[in-house]
Each structure stands twice: as C-alpha cells, then as structure tokens.
Design a protein around this nucleic acid. Structure first.
Length: 935
DNA sequence: ATCCTCCCCTAC
DNA sequence: TAAGGTAGGGGAGGAT
C-alpha cells in the first residue's frame, strides 16, 4: 500500500524537514561528482536547468544522466529557474499552476538527437496554460523515442533502451501524488485497468489509499507537520551549534549600507528585553505568487477549489438544517455563559451567509490563505470559497504548493539562525526570537536590524514578512499584527499602555471564537475595556488560569518566557473527512490503517506511549445524513475514550487491538461514523533500555542518598529487559508508586493490557508516596531525571523525553504569578506510574553523558536558577565520571558548562560552575593525584 | 487537595 | 465536490 511516506520519502525529520538543505546540497554534490566522471558529449544544455516532476520517459534518472552528459543541470528539488520536465501532471496540480515552463521530456531527447537546443516552446506539455490539459500518454511517443536510440544511454549496466521501451509499453501516468516531486514509478502492469477507478474511487475512507491521499491533500495536516518539523529543526540547530555566529558581522555590514539608518536614540522595551516576532505575510499566497507575478496586487486565495462554477446540489444535502444545528449549539453554549435565552442570542457564524439556494456560491472548499487585496473585500482565512466568491467574484485561486512552503520556511529559519539561535519556532512561517543578546553583541539598532533582516528574508525567499518587537512575546506579537503587511513595528515600553487600550480582545493570542463570544456577552471587546474587570471576576468567567492570563494580557503583560526547546507529549492521527463506512469490516480495516499510521509516527518520533485514546465523530441524530460539505463530517457528536496500558508501547498490534476494543465499546453504527482519531499520550522515549552500568557499582557505595531521593526496593520488574538489570535498580521517591507487573512474555508481543477501569493496582508492594511530584521536583530539578545507571554511550532509556508535564500539578496560589516553565526542561521519568527498576536513587548517575549535557542545556536556557541540591547532583555526576576515568567526556561536559555559563553571563550560574569545578578537581586529585586541565 | 478522564478551546 | 490535522493548555466533575 502506498503510504504518505512516499511524499516524505525520507520518513523522518532528518531528511524531510530539518536537514532539507543539507540533503539538497548532498544530492547536488553527488550529481556534480557523477557529472564530472561521465564523459561530456556536448554542451547543448549549457545554462539550462531542469527539474523532473512525476513519471517521465526517459526516467528522471536517465534525464539526469543526459543533462550531465550534455552540459545541463539537473535539480532534485525545484528551483524557480528550472524547466519542469513532465510527461503528465496530476490534474489537481495542473489546474492553476504556471505551465509556461512545463516541458515534455522529448525536448531533451530530441535536442540531443538534433545535437542542438531546440525551442522548448514546441514541447510545452500544455499549450495554453490554465486551460484543460491535454493528457499526454507515454504511448504517444513510442515512435519518437527511437530517435534517441543513438544516444549512448547504456553508460550503466542496465540496457536502458530496452528498459525504456518496456516502460513505455506499460506506462500510464498516474496522478498518484499531486505534490510529490520525486519520481513516482509504480509497477503499473496491473494498474492500467484500474486507472479510471483510481481517479474516482479514492473518495471514502473505505478505500485502501484513502489515508495517504487525504494526508497528501490536507492543508491542516501539512501545517501541523511543518510546525513540528521546524520546532525540531530549531532543536537540532541548537544541538549542533557552537553558538558562534560569524554571519553577525556581515549583518552589521549590511546595516552600515542602509540609506536611512535609524537615528541614534535607542528604543527601549520593557524589562530591557528585545523580543522579536516574525511572521510571513499570507504565507501560502506569497509562496504561490513567486511564480505568478501576474497575480500580484489582485485578490488571491489558496484553495482546493477552482471556484466559480455552479454545481448542482448533491442529493440529500440540507445545508439549512445542518447550519442551523451549528448555530443552535453555539447559542446553547453562550446561553450557558451569560444566561441569556438561546433564542435571543446573536452572534456571527461562519456559515451565516451560506444557504441552500446559492448554487453558484456553494463551494465549501476552505480558503487556506488569502492576499491582502482579498482581505480588503472581507475574505478571511478559513472562509468557504462560495462565501468568498460572493464577496469578491473575481477572486483568483491558486493551488497548494506544500513543497514550496517547506522550502521557503526552511530558508526563513536558516536566515534567522545565522544570527542567533534564541529562536522559538511557532510554525513553519512564524517564530519568536530573543534578540537581546544579538543586538548587544553587534551593537546595532533594533530598527536597522529589522530592516536588514526583513530585506534578507524577502530576497532569499521571494516572500514578504513582518516583524514586531516588544519586551515580551505578547507585545512582540501584537506589534507584528500592527506591522502587517510587509512592515515592522516597535512596541517600546513607553507605548505599551496606550497601545493596549485599543487592542481587540479577539486579537490576543489564546482568545479565539468562544472566548471572544463569552467576553462579548459580558460586554467587553477591547483590552482597555477588560482592564476594568477584577482578576476574580475574570477567573469566575473563564477559569483560574485563563482568567489570570487574560488579566495580564489585556495589560500587555506576559510572563511566559520563550522556550527554545520542545518536548513532544503526544502523538496522534485523525481523519474527519471522507469517513463513510458501509459495514463494520470497513471500519475495522480503517482503524487498522490509522493505527499503523500512529505506529509509524511513533517510530519516527522514537516514542512509546501508555495511554491510547480513540476519538469518534458520530453523526448527530438530527443531522442530515448527507453533509453540506462533500465528504465532510457534518454536525456530529464527539466521543473520546481512552485506555491506559501497563507498559509503554509502540507495538502496532497492541495499538490496533486497543483501538478496536475502544471502538467496539462505543457501540456506534459504522454507517454513522464521520470522523476517527487515535491519540497516544504518556510518552516515553523508545530508545533502548538501560544496560548494566559499571558506574553504579562503586557509586552506590559512595553516594549518600538524599532525603527527597529516597528510594525503595522494587520487588517485581516491569519487563523482561529489566529483569536482568535488577541489581541496579534505582528509583526516585517522587515517582508514582504505581507499577507494572512482570510479564513473562516477550515485551512487545505481550498483549497484556490493563483496562483503564482497573484500579491503579500496581501500587501493591509499594507505599504510596509521591503525592506531590511537582513539589519534590521543584525542590530539585535534577531529580526528575533519575534513571537506571549507565555510563558512557551505552543505550539508555531516556527519561526526560516525552514525559508528562509536571507543571499542571503546580497549584497557582496567585494566578498572576506564573510559574516558570520548568516542564520545558524536565519531565518526570516516563509516566508516573512507570516503574523503572532500580534499587536506589542515584540522581543523574544513570544517564549517559550526552543526556546530562542535553539536560543542562535545556536547563540553562530555561532561566531556572539552580539550587544547592542541584549543584550537588551535577557535581556527583561529574565526580563519578572522574572515578570511572571517563575523562574525555567529563571534559566535554565541563567545557560545555563553562562556555554556556559564560555566555549567560549570570552570576549564579558562574558560581555554580566554579563550585562544580572545585568538586571535580578535588576528586581528580583523589583519583589521579592531579587536577584536570581545563582550557 | 489531588488525580484522572473526558471534554473544550486555541493556534498554526 | 474536497481533502474539517495536530499538539498543547486547561477546566469540570467524579474518584481517591
């Protein structure tokens, strides 16, 4: 079965997102090498670069070779200057893309045959762009290919001409993947007869290709994946950086070249911090307009729909009923908040101006992004195409270009990352950057910095962006909004108070539709107005946290620090489109596929999970069977059910089994299902389990066990893997006592599962401790990482990854005073119920040195101050490295710590470093008789 | 009080 | 036609 990995052929962050550019460079390097080796036959293609899209004859591989032999350039990823070589393009892609440079492969072969560069215009795949494409089947060119025969294609061992002929016979271009730009070569011998079917039948989730087809086309899926990708990218950049930024000098030079450098009075932001928020302007549209200059300045929208054509209504659709159900539900909610009877409530709804009668404006394709010209007409993102056309009949539509978004985003991030890595990725086109240190370092004005950076981004990406600056992330963000489009704005400390008064509540981050409605229903729509409410009042309406957050926000305050490091807490996959089952088997089959999808993501993210949740959307009884949106979910009831496993797993069998069980328990008629989602939480790293560590042997006798680290014996073990390591079991006190029973069956095959109904039974044999995990952890941050002993580079079970947040347990006495985001740094070791088999607590000692470094890094970045017990714990760890004569790694960590504490320029941390160093040196003298040499 | 489960809300 | 995903924060209410 074709899965979406085809679209992300590298199946993982490394290649798909984060290392994209490296990958491109590598591919091209390989190409150059190869090209260099091959004999040059001509220079016909000097100055010509091509990019091959989809299946072609000759194949991409062969075209690459031909280009190489004849002086041309072959790109693995599409550049704007490339000719696109294609034998066929998926219908969807053709509809609106710029086709002026889409050329048939015969252009290459015939040019070679003629030994001169022929006019590509004679080989356009589509003569009139934006008209119905003429499908160009390979068979048509069978005879022409003979012209190419003299060309020495046989430079490899494969008899290519034969292969080509063979392929030609069988080849029919298939629109497998509208966004793939790698070759999709499929064995089609059995698929020709399926072509028609293929075009029409991947409609519902009962089709085996549905999931990949859907994900390939889902903008929300891509937005989500890209977001995760760039968060990871920032993680990776930081991980691999030496935090030297030579590009800063070039930046400074560019500032010097500015025509109008900012005048000298420096801007000052609250708390002396300079936080920048960058956001690309209508990102999808901007990317799409790069190759469509003719559409600039016009109202443009990115959508699946071509728009415009009136379509007959599908039988059974009853939009009026469906939409009225949405409105009723909304009214009910609001009524609950403000006490006004449902019937009297007025509010705006996105379905308001859509009715059954409007066939011409009936498209319910959503607008992913629209240009500012379109916004001027009242169009907004998320609006249905029909409604948008009503507002602006000449709205131009362009298709999605998910690969383009990825490339541009990658360029954006790398541009910023040249100057600083104090970056918090928000999404593929948006980030926060703490510029405080950067600006101080190169001593330029923030205005000049913004000007130069934005110019650079525009130059490199071809897309405009806006930046906002403030003393915290909220201010920066609001500043960006003010700056848009294609501008910059500086919300300096002196402006904040006045600025906030007029800010609309709905423009505050975190205030969405519901909250806006709630606040409006109690009479407030601006920050200035909301400032009159007391904290208590706000909390009563919105809850403690949200109320406090809003209380701060409407005054321009935001105590949430940027977080540069992200830790995943859940993995999920859901499909709420195209779910139409005729029978139970189809439903089960889909559950299996979706489970496999979740499984594959868990592999990709290297996590195991203990809690599986199934989400079902089921048609509400009153809702029409036929949905207003084609294959949409319509008006539904939503149910979530979860199951807690004893052991964290990523086993596809277990996941599938649990999911099916959860589904059966719901007893829903498969015909009524409209959406299905699977989520896995309580994550742990799936890295290898701890192995026996030598360190513990001598350390356990030398380490006093701290009070809050008190450990206990574990009488039974969690899994076989652990049993043999029982001698080294350690566990911190704060870990929840719930434990996992021994299983004698092989770990991942064991279907032993515990229903969530079961009591937290595993507590037997263990006194309930740990009623306050967060308290003990906040006492000593390092405690959270306790783990089985392990030295050096042996595989380990990483306890700090993907655990649960400890923060939600922290009660906020004063909701205005927010906690520092500790959970960004540290996580409880796996689930609180998890049992790491350990005999006694040994702090960090079980962790490999890289993990400790990672932990230190995250901690340093968090702004958390170390406590004496933390210092002691770090010292212990490093001293243990001395004892185990692991000096080279010790050196790395010490140097790391030294460098970072210097960088931070924080007295407390410098002091910490000195303390730690002292202890290490003492141990060095004890063990080696001399001190460690530190650069 | 605190935890857990099942939601709801938000953002991109 | 149309591609209504995904992760995180947080609240309500029941169990402990």
């Amino acid at each position: 079965m074709r899965r979406r990995d085809e679209k992300f052929p590298d199946n993982g962050f490394e290649a798909w997102g984060g290392y994209m550019q490296a990958k491109i460079a590598k591919l091209e390097e390989q190409y150059c090498l190869q090209a260099g080796k091959n004999e040059k036959l001509s220079n016909i293609f000097n100055g010509v670069s091509i990019y091959v899209n989809g299946f072609t004859t000759p194949s991409a591989e062969e075209l690459k070779e031909l280009m190489s032999q004849h002086g041309g350039v072959y790109h693995t990823y599409q550049r704007s200057e490339d000719f696109v070589i294609a034998s066929n393009l998926p219908d969807t892609k053709v509809k609106n893309m710029s086709l002026a440079r889409v050329i048939k492969p015969e252009w290459i072969t015939e040019s070679i045959a003629a030994n001169q560069l022929l006019d590509y215009k004679n080989y356009l795949l589509y003569r009139n762009s934006r008209t119905q494409p003429q499908l160009n089947f390979c068979k048509n060119i069978k005879n022409e290919v003979s012209k190419v025969e003299p060309i020495p294609l046989e430079s490899s061992n494969t008899p290519k001409s034969e292969k080509m002929l063979e392929v030609k016979e069988e080849c029919v271009p298939i629109s497998v993947n509208s966004t793939s730009h790698t070759d999709v070569i499929v064995d089609q011998s059995h698929e020709i007869s399926d072509l028609k079917k293929n075009e029409n039948s991947t409609k519902t989730a009962a089709d085996p290709n549905f999931i990949s087809e859907f994900y390939n086309n889902s903008r929300l899926h891509h937005i989500s994946q890209l977001g995760a990708c760039f968060k990871q990218h920032v993680n990776d950049l930081r991980e691999n950086s030496n935090f030297k930024f030579p590009a800063r000098m070039a930046l400074k030079d560019r500032v010097c070249l500015l025509d109008n450098p900012a005048n000298l009075s420096p801007l000052s932001f609250e708390k002396g911090k300079t936080i920048m928020h960058i956001d690309m302007d209508c990102f999808f549209v901007s990317v799409g307009l790069r190759n469509r200059p003719e559409l600039r300045g016009k109202p443009v929208a990115v959508t699946h729909s071509k728009g415009g054509q009136a379509r007959p209504k599908r039988a059974g659709v009853d939009r009026n009923t469906e939409f009225s159900l949405y409105r009723q539900k909304q009214a009910k909610k609001l009524s609950k908040v403000n006490g006004i009877p449902e019937e009297e409530i007025e509010f705006e709804s996105r379905v308001d101006n859509i009715t059954d009668e409007d066939e011409k404006y009936g498209s319910m394709s959503e607008i992913a992004s629209c240009s500012y010209e379109a916004r001027d007409k009242g169009i907004s993102n998320g609006m249905f195409m029909g409604a948008a056309l009503k507002l602006c009949p000449n709205l131009q539509t362009i298709p999605y270009d998910f690969d383009g978004y990825k490339e541009v985003a990658y360029t954006l991030y790398n541009t910023v990352a040249q100057y600083t890595l104090h970056i918090e990725a928000v999404s593929c086109d948006e980030m926060y950057v703490d510029c405080t240190e950067l600006l101080k370092d190169i001593n330029i004005s923030v205005q000049d910095f913004a000007t130069v950076l934005r110019a650079e981004i525009k130059e490199k990406t071809g897309c405009p962006c806006s930046t906002g600056f403030g003393g915290n992330r909220l201010q920066a963000r609001l500043a960006t909004k003010k700056a848009k489009p294609d501008g910059q704005f500086f919300l300096t400390a002196d402006l904040v108070e006045d600025f906030m008064v007029d800010i609309k509540l709905k423009d505050l981050p975190g205030v969405g539709r519901q909250t806006t409605h709630k606040l409006e229903s109690i009479g407030h729509s601006t920050c200035g107005s909301l400032q009159s409410l007391s904290l208590i009042t706000l909390q009563r309406h919105l809850g403690n946290k949200t109320g406090a957050q809003l209380f701060d926000q409407c005054r321009g305050r935001d105590l949430n620090p940027l977080s540069f490091h992200t830790i995943r807490k859940s993995v999920s996959a859901e499909v709420n489109y195209g779910i139409r089952f005729e029978n139970n088997d189809q439903c089960i089959e889909f559950l299996k596929q979706l489970s496999a999808e979740v499984h594959s993501r868990m592999i990709q993210y290297k996590v195991l999970g203990k809690c599986i949740t199934l989400k079902l959307m089921v048609r509400a009884e009153e809702a029409p069977v036929e949905t207003a949106k084609f294959m949409g979910h319509g008006f539904c009831n939503v149910v979530n059910k979860s199951t807690s496993l004893n052991n964290a797993t990523n086993d596809v069998e277990i996941i599938t089994k649990e999911v099916i069980a959860l589904c059966k328990k719901q007893n829903v008629d498969p015909k009524e299902m409209r959406g299905i989602g699977i989520q896995v939480t309580k994550l742990e790293s799936s890295n290898a389990k701890p192995t026996k560590g030598a360190m513990s042997k001598f350390l356990s006798t030398t380490k006093p066990i701290k009070d809050d680290l008190k450990c206990e014996n574990v009488s039974d073990s969690m899994e076989e893997d652990f049993v043999e390591n029982k001698n080294i079991c350690v566990r911190p006190k704060y870990v929840s006592p719930q434990k996992v029973k021994t299983s004698s069956s092989p770990k991942h095959k064991s279907p032993v599962m515990e229903s969530r109904k079961s009591p937290p039974a595993k507590r037997r044999g263990r006194p309930p401790k740990n009623s306050k995990p967060n308290q003990s952890t906040s006492k000593n941050l390092m405690n959270k990482f306790l783990q089985g002993p392990n030295i050096r580079d042996t595989p380990y079970k990483d306890p700090m990854i993907k655990g649960q947040s400890i923060s939600k347990d922290t009660p906020l006495k004063d909701p205005i005073i927010k906690k520092i985001d500790v959970n960004e740094i540290v996580q409880e070791p796996s689930s609180s119920k998890d049992t790491v088999k350990e005999e006694k607590s040994q702090g960090l000692l079980g962790l490999p040195w890289e993990k400790v470094r990672e932990l230190l890094r995250a901690w340093l970045e968090s702004g958390q101050m170390p406590l004496p017990c933390d210092v002691e714990m770090i010292s212990e760890y490093l001293c243990a490295m001395v004892i185990s004569r692991n000096i080279d790694k010790l050196n790395i960590i010490l140097n790391f710590l030294k460098r970072r504490t210097r960088e931070m320029n924080c007295d407390r941390w410098l002091e910490v470093y000195e303390q730690i160093l002292e202890q290490v040196q003492n141990t060095m003298i004890a063990v080696y008789g001399k001190k460690l040499f530190i650069k």
